[in-house]
């Protein structure tokens, strides 16, 4: 399951990444393997999405979210 497939309010735990370059940035921002992510909202036009991770809110595009694989 990928992060981009979650609906608003659903949670998942980060397992791995499909894009190395993106993963480096995401991990710096606190999206680490083992970390819980909750989708807090989706932008009015369907993209990007906002997630709740390690104590704060992060927004990213769906395409970027699809590089995060959840457990």
């Amino acid at each position: 399951m990928r992060l981009s497939q979650l609906e608003v309010g659903e949670t998942g735990i980060v397992k791995e990444f499909t894009d190395l370059e993106m993963s480096v940035k995401l991990m710096e921002m606190g999206c680490l393997p083992g970390e819980e992510i909750r989708v807090s909202r989706i932008a009015p036009l369907g993209d990007p999405i906002a997630i709740h991770v390690s104590g704060y809110q992060l927004s990213l595009r769906k395409k970027e979210a699809s590089t995060i694989i959840l457990q």
């Binding site: 370059e21 993106m22 940035k25 704060y56 809110q57 992060l58 927004s59 990213l60 595009r61 970027e64």
Partner: peptide
């Protein structure tokens, strides 16, 4: 640079 969107939404 590669365009990222990854952005904090501060309180």
């Amino acid at each position: 640079e590669r365009g990222y969107f990854i952005m904090e939404l501060p309180v």
